[in-house]
């Protein structure tokens, strides 16, 4: 499964489950909508580290990397390249 679909599925089933959304626009601002909150980000980081074998440093947890699905995909791809 591509990173985008994999992340979207995780967000819809684990983080934004109460919102009843069927899909997420890749550029939808997940922070402004409150879809990702401070507890949700912990689960998300754990998921990324376990799914892709990458290390998400606390310094990287910024809007630049986690604002929307596209930015997350870009971040994961960069981390995979740096492995």
């Amino acid at each position: 499964m591509r990173i985008l679909e994999n992340l979207e599925k995780f967000l819809l089933t684990e983080i934004a489950v109460d919102l009843g959304k069927k899909s997420l626009d890749p550029n939808e601002d997940l922070l402004e909508q409150g879809i990702i909150d401070s507890l949700g980000i912990m689960k998300l980081v754990l998921f990324l580290e376990e799914s892709y074998g990458i290390q998400v440093d606390d310094q990287d947890i910024t809007p630049e990397n986690f604002q929307c699905l596209s930015s997350m995909v870009k971040y994961v791809e960069q981390q995979l390249q740096n492995k």
């Binding site: 401070s38 310094q59 809007p63």
Partner: peptide, 13 residues
């Protein structure tokens, strides 16, 4: 301290 928007991660760490 850290980047803009990094405060919550710093606090949690």
């Amino acid at each position: 301290l850290g980047k803009e928007g990094n405060g919550a991660a710093i606090f949690d760490d």
